[in-house]
């Protein structure tokens, strides 16, 4: 059981309050006061959930994230979503669909479970790849054609995720294997 820092509590209060203001749309004293009471109640109910450890390597505190990097990361991610959409469309509208599906597994050396969650979601949004399973630090990824897992193989995309948490650069992806299971036997 670890305690939440003041910074982390403030950030969750501010984001929940912003959500309340967007949803209600009133700025007078009564509505804002009711919002403060509601947000405090929500944070009290969810305190146990936020301090509970679901995995061994859970992120302890929000201040581990580098916020300046996050802005760059979000814009990079939007660009990747657009590229991914055009990539899939180009595959589907060809007469003879150029797909050659591959299953790859690799180990990712990342500091926390939250970093792995972000990496998995980023893999699902980048062109041609989809996270299928994460167990410990073993990722199983499905790629739709031969070239689409190049971003993982060259370690370019996982390093963007690592930069959100740590300053120095290092190799993230280790022992990448291509599991090409042949025709199903059952």
């Amino acid at each position: 059981m670890n305690k939440l820092s003041f910074f982390s509590l403030t950030m969750s209060f501010l984001s929940l309050m912003a959500f309340w203001v967007i949803m209600s749309g009133f700025f007078d004293f009564i509505h804002l006061g009711l919002g403060v009471v509601t947000v405090a109640g929500v944070m009290y109910v969810n305190y146990q959930l936020k301090t509970h450890r679901f995995f061994d390597d859970d992120m302890d505190d929000l201040s581990e994230v580098r916020f300046g990097r996050t802005v760059y990361y979000v814009f990079w991610m939007v660009l990747q979503i657009v590229i991914a959409g055009f990539h899939v469309v180009r595959i589907i509208i060809r007469r003879k669909m150029p797909i050659h599906t591959t299953m790859i597994t690799f180990r990712a050396n990342l500091p926390s479970a939250h970093a792995k969650m972000i990496l998995g979601n980023s893999i699902s949004l980048t062109p041609g790849t989809l996270t299928i399973d994460i167990e410990g630090d073993l990722f199983t990824v499905h790629a739709i054609d031969d070239t689409s897992f190049a971003g993982i193989a060259t370690d370019e995309m996982p390093r963007q995720v690592l930069k959100l948490f740590e300053k120095e650069e290092r190799q993230v992806v280790e022992d990448l294997k291509i599991v090409t299971r042949t025709k199903s036997t059952n």
């Binding site: 979503i81 991914a84 959409g85 990539h87 899939v88 469309v89 699902s124 949004l125 062109p127 989809l130």
Partner: peptide
Amino acid sequence: YSRTHSVSKSDT
């Protein structure tokens, strides 16, 4: 598994 690509990227 290829259909999941179509749902998760193009639809999003």
